[in-house]
Amino acid sequence: MDNLGYLFAAYTIIWALIFGYVFFLYYKQRKLRQQMDLLKDSKGEREGPD
């Protein structure tokens, strides 16, 4: 009774979910960086060049 299909399915799902979560964190980080840059730019514009 080897059931290799089940073993393959289990490990595939483990890595898919972990990579999915890592990708979610990466995507969130990129979005937050963009927001932070926008806020910094708008602050810079308001304060002027001096």
């Binding site: 059931n3 799902i13 483990i14 979910l17």
Partner: peptide
């Protein structure tokens, strides 16, 4: 958040193992 991800995996892998 990480605990929920890991518990989801425990339930899924447990279920696959139960089937086998």
């Amino acid at each position: 958040e990480v605990g929920v991800v890991f518990t989801s995996l425990v339930l899924i892998t447990g279920s696959i193992w139960a089937k086998a």
